[in-house]
């Protein structure tokens, strides 16, 4: 069982090591050398796989570079002051451009309506349904359990709330492994094009099965609720928005992290 976020805890208490930045920089700088050594040393099938990957990587990088250049050129062309004249601000705010001006998002009513209908206009409308035998592994331990085989272990990432207490292990039907529990998600705001690391408040809906929603299983396409109180969004009635929904876009069990898109 992992011992929680002990590294974070250490940093919170004592701060980072004074030379941490430097070490990271050096590690990054050494990275190409390591790769080069590896590519020379590898032989056979491993070399084939390695070079194939490297080839793909290089193509990706080149493409990205080209896209960036194109974007810059377009931005330069359009930057004739027209862009600034889009969102007008009053005279008393003109000199305060440094302050963060995130758009107030005002769609609680819309969101409520969605909730009622149970229909979601989401970025990922269709995902492959997950069968039970992929999500749950049958546990065969002990004499009693072996006879009936009713114990399951969840093999996907789960969210477990703060107030959760395990049942006595003898009666526990679903085991949610500590290693696959996650509390934070990287949520991208589609209009602002910024990504925040936000705390998860709960799993709203897993499209595959209501049982998964209940267990807090997070797979691709799952709607989760995240805590946005730090972003300072406001409703039309002038209250701070606390929770907002987001849809998971990656496969957390493979990536080890949750990436999501906020629903606006």
């Amino acid at each position: 069982m992992p011992q929680g976020d002990y590294i974070e805890e250490f940093r919170r208490r004592f701060g980072e090591r004074p030379d941490q930045r430097e070490k990271e920089r050096k590690r990054r700088a050494r990275e190409p050398h390591k790769v080069a050594v590896r590519s020379k040393e590898l032989r056979g099938l491993k070399a084939k796989i390695f070079h194939r990957e490297r080839f793909k990587e290089k193509i990706r990088l080149r493409k990205e570079e080209r896209a960036l250049k194109l974007k810059d050129a377009v931005a330069k062309k359009n930057d004739t002051g027209e862009d600034r004249l889009k969102n007008a601000i009053p005279a008393y705010l003109l000199d305060r451009e440094d302050s963060v001006r995130a758009k107030a998002l005002t769609n609680t009513i819309k969101q409520k309506r969605k909730e009622k209908g149970g229909k979601w206009d989401v970025p990922l409308p269709k995902v492959r349904p997950l069968p039970d035998d992929e999500v749950f592994r049958v546990i065969k331990t002990g004499k009693k359990a072996k006879q009936k085989e009713w114990k399951r272990m969840v093999t996907k990432v789960t969210f477990v709330g703060d107030g959760f207490t395990r049942r006595p292990p003898k009666y526990e039907r679903f085991i949610r492994p500590m290693a696959l529990r996650m509390r934070r998600a990287n949520v991208t705001h589609p209009e602002l094009n910024v990504t925040f690391s936000l705390e998860i408040l709960g799993v709203k809906k897993n499209p595959s099965s209501p049982l998964y929603s209940q267990l807090g299983v997070i797979t691709r396409g799952t709607i989760i609720e995240v805590n946005v109180s730090e972003l300072g969004l406001v409703t039309t009635s002038g209250r701070v928005v606390w929770g907002k929904y987001a849809q998971v876009t990656n496969q957390p069990e493979l990536d080890g992290t949750i990436n999501a898109v906020m629903l606006v």
């Binding site: 601000i89 009053p90 705010l93 758009k103 107030a104 005002t106 039309t236 009635s237 002038g238």
Partner: peptide, 12 residues
Amino acid sequence: RDLPGHADEVYA
């Protein structure tokens, strides 16, 4: 009185 209704920042 609290008067909600605007969908965004009130400037004036």
